[in-house]
């Protein structure tokens, strides 16, 4: 299995609900807490596994706002695991999920340096590295209803912009989506082979106008006059 996310940049509205749901689930889950510093102060800061950033693509007037949630891509060639000296960072053979064993981590930051996607954040309180687990404590929890065995971010997304599944299965929803919609990997030139895939915004279809209104005689004459007489 190769579990991961498909994120639809066409429908993502940039509401940060996934980031908040992630924070809520994981701060009280097995990897928690996701420590905050001065949460009510002037400069609140803390650990997040998922962050949403906002970009403008193109030049005026042909611009588009793109909201981009970023979390661990659970890379096939995960340099964060390669560089880790303690063996705290590891990639699971059975499903490809990249995890940190907090009992082994020495807090050297090297894995965060090796990750191009900003997916790892050190918790200064605990002194260990923390990152997205793909909600491993949800997706395998048999006590949950099958539709709830998904990452918190996927379940919460009000725009259905997030999809979870197995990329090794060509018939899974994520495989089909990324195939049909031309899913893209980020920074492919670095060779990390990220699993998470981003669907580009669809180009807006042109609204057909030809059959919208059959012109009356009067309007046809008007149109003809407008065309014929140079203003």
């Amino acid at each position: 299995m190769r579990l991961g996310l498909v994120i639809d940049l066409d429908t993502c509205v940039g509401c940060h609900a996934c980031a908040v749901a992630c924070k809520q689930w994981n701060t009280s889950g097995t990897t928690g807490p996701l420590t905050d510093e001065s949460p009510y102060g002037a400069a609140p800061t803390g650990v997040w596994f998922n962050r949403v950033r906002h970009y403008e693509v193109g030049d005026y007037p042909h611009t588009k706002t793109v909201n981009m949630p970023l979390s661990c891509m659970h890379c096939d060639d995960a340099a964060c695991v390669t560089v880790c000296p303690t063996g705290a960072s590891y990639k699971r053979r059975e499903d490809g999920i990249v995890l940190v064993d907090q009992d082994k981590c020495m807090g050297c930051n090297l894995c965060a340096w090796a990750c191009p996607y900003g997916a790892r954040e050190l918790d200064p309180q605990d002194g260990v590295m923390k990152k997205c687990t793909l909600c491993i404590d949800r997706i395998y929890d048999g006590a949950l209803a099958p539709e709830d065995r998904q990452p918190a971010c996927v379940i919460t997304c009000p725009a259905h912009a997030r999809h979870f599944g197995d990329f090794d299965d060509p018939d899974s929803a994520v495989s089909r989506l990324s195939r049909e919609r031309g899913g893209r990997k980020l920074m492919p030139e670095l060779g990390y082979e990220p699993t998470n895939t981003y669907l580009p915004p669809r180009s807006a279809p042109t609204v057909p106008t030809a059959d919208v209104r059959r012109g009356s005689l009067m309007s046809n004459v008007k149109d003809w006059v407008n065309k014929a007489i140079a203003r």
Binding site: P44, T45, R51, H54, V57, G58, D59, A112
Partner: peptide
């Protein structure tokens, strides 16, 4: 890499509108 390959939009100019956080993070500090 560039901001274009980082976001996957390689055929147009990309610029940051909002980082999504008001104060610093582990990433901006490090």
């Amino acid at each position: 890499p560039s901001l274009n390959t980082a976001t996957g939009f390689t055929q147009a100019r990309v610029r940051l509108l909002d980082q999504g956080h008001t104060a610093g993070t582990f990433l901006t500090r490090e």
